[in-house]
């Protein structure tokens, strides 16, 4: 049982006009096994929340705290956060020329598990995880994210989540840019991992579409850098009907 606890988180970014406040006091607690949907309009700070928790250097923490099972996440380096059990599936996964997927996965899993996986079981493990996401085995020999389609990038993110077995995963607009088939495959992947583990999920999305496939336990509406309303799955239905208009004008 793990708990990610975000308290009064405040985050700013450097701009040409000086420091700009993006997050204005976010409170959120995610426990193992729970799925929290964070929904909000563009520019509300959803991605900032995701990247701040993962430790991207662009974001300055100006107040508040983030802990994972009581450990101070904000004091950890980016790689330490991952090794502590956090995972961020990125909206725009980055190309790494000359580094093959298989080399990347192996290096990453070795870092997370603290030892290199046994060759024989590792090959089988990767093969199985790739097959479950309908990925061609030849995919492993390609360079990380280089020339990947939108769907391939997102499958690759979920593949990493499956192999790295985090405690808490943040999925940042994983549904964006996916056609229905790809969305289904990716969502099934997330659901499978949830069934086989006690993964806690923060699912960041602009649209309600992905919530037809991944059922949230809680829905939070995000606007102007904070959570402005929280509720159960029914809140998503309301958003689907009314949009974000009532939250944005405030």
């Amino acid at each position: 049982m793990s708990t990610l606890e975000i308290k009064n988180l405040q985050v700013a970014v450097d701009t040409e006009e000086g420091l700009k406040q993006i997050l204005r006091g976010v409170d959120l607690t995610i426990n193992s096994g729970e799925t929290h949907a964070i929904m909000g309009p563009n520019g509300s700070g959803k991605s900032t929340l995701a990247y701040s928790i993962a430790g991207h250097p662009k974001y300055n923490i100006t107040g508040g705290s983030v802990t994972l099972d009581g450990q101070d996440v904000l004091a950890m380096s980016v790689d330490e956060r991952a090794r502590a059990g956090l995972f961020l599936a990125m909206q725009y996964p980055v190309e790494v020329p000359g580094v093959s997927v298989s080399n990347f996965l192996r290096t990453s899993v070795t870092a997370i598990r603290g030892e290199a996986p046994k060759v024989r079981s590792w090959v089988g493990e990767v093969k199985e995880a790739m097959a479950a996401l309908s990925m061609d085995p030849a995919f492993a020999e390609r360079n990380v994210n280089e020339g990947f389609s939108g769907g391939e990038k997102k499958r690759h993110e979920i593949l990493q989540m499956e192999l790295l077995k985090p405690k808490i995963a943040i999925l940042d607009e994983t549904d964006s840019g996916l056609d229905v088939d790809a969305l289904r495959v990716v969502s099934e992947g997330v659901n499978r991992i949830k069934e086989n583990s006690d993964l806690g999920v923060m699912l960041i999305t602009h649209y309600t579409r992905i919530l037809r496939y991944i059922k949230p336990d809680f829905v939070h509406v995000f606007s102007a850098g904070r959570i402005v309303e929280a509720g159960g799955p029914e809140l998503a239905n309301k958003l689907e009907e009314n949009g974000y208009a009532e939250y944005v004008t405030a």
Partner: peptide, 13 residues
Amino acid sequence: EQLFYLESRGIPA
């Protein structure tokens, strides 16, 4: 961004 991506997968800097 490349370094962040790799580090966010647990790989030391």
